[in-house]
Design a protein around this nucleic acid. Structure first.
Lengths: 181, 181
DNA sequence: TACATTTAATAGCGATCGCTATGGAAAATA
DNA sequence: TATTTTCCATAGCGATCGCTATTAAATGTA
């Protein structure tokens, strides 16, 4: 997972993987089938269970809190000292040949799922009267995810964690004000 | 440029390039030297002259107008019908092997230049009393560029132009209010 | 027309890609 | 201990990578 995270899907060779995993080439193929399935398993491990995301969304006091937590966690994860820079979802399949079109859409599906769940969480706050009804939940959710993916790029460029945190906070300044109870 | 834009730097082969350009392999090497220099020329063509960016920044009435124009132009450029989806800077070198580290930093330098110029433009508005002195110009500028790079990811995922425009507008909602004259 | 010079295309260089067939050592059964 | 079965590493498959040497065609000079 770390090697794919660092160097991307197509630009990681089987040789890179065997060296990092300390196993031989046939072992990988008997265990995972092929490179594509190994990558998809790595993506699953990286993204974590959708249920976990759903749980943290549900447990947040407000949708804004949930979005803030996602942005903060991203800034921290993208600058970890024991992991590659940036977001694996953002960089591993950002580009590629036509052979990897299905892998790219698999990663895109993960993003779409995150946007959909965050959109639903925002809708809940609108229904509960916490956010104004004119709020475009899907726009807000997509903005947050776009922000996270963009932060990945700057993290890869070397931007430090504190700067990313400020950017994340800045992006949330446009969040609609909560209505009075 | 279009092929690199579509498929990325390392994941574009010389064969892809000759097919798209309608020339033979040796022609490319006599004209450009090697694949790396061809890519860097394509990046220059894509990014345009820094002077042009500087000029549009200077001509904008306010830094906010300049940022808004950049975001709007990005949403449009990333969904062009005659060009690949997304931003070439964001996707072409988002990941790669260690051989292409210098190419990745070259692209990163382009981004840093854009952030620096936008930061300076915001500082000008602060100096002119249009924006409050507590404004973190570098944070605002980095937020805008991160937003643009993140929009590239969503554009690649298939998001339509109107949605991207809404996201861009949403990101600007957090921009500090102009002071009264 | 005969020759020299430049231009560009065919063919192929070594290296590496993802992937797999084959052979030999360790573990389990008899 | 003898035999069978399981396991895994070495070696190499065809294809493609970035790149270039060599050869044929086109152009300019005499």
């Amino acid at each position: 997972m770390l090697v794919f995270w660092q160097h991307g899907y197509e630009t990681t060779s089987i040789n890179d993987l065997t060296a990092a995993m300390g196993v031989t080439t046939p072992s990988i193929y008997t265990a995972f089938g092929d490179k594509k399935r190994l990558f998809l398993e790595a993506i699953d491990m990286y993204a974590g269970s959708p249920d976990d995301l759903q749980q943290s969304l549900d447990q947040a006091a407000t949708a804004r809190d949930a979005a803030s937590a996602m942005l903060t966690a991203a800034a921290e994860a993208f600058t970890g000292e024991t992991t590659p820079r940036g977001c694996m979802l953002a960089s591993a399949t950002a580009s590629g040949s036509t052979n990897s079109a299905d892998v790219q859409t698999a990663v895109a599906d993960v993003r779409r799922d995150i946007i959909a769940r965050l959109t639903a969480r925002i809708d809940k706050d609108v229904t509960d009267g916490i956010l104004p009804v004119i709020t475009s939940s899907s726009t807000l959710a997509a903005m947050v995810v776009a922000m996270i993916q963009g932060m990945s790029v700057l993290a890869r460029d070397g931007m430090e964690r504190e700067s990313l945190q400020k950017i994340a906070g800045c992006a949330l300044d446009g969040w609609p004000d909560a209505l009075q109870a």
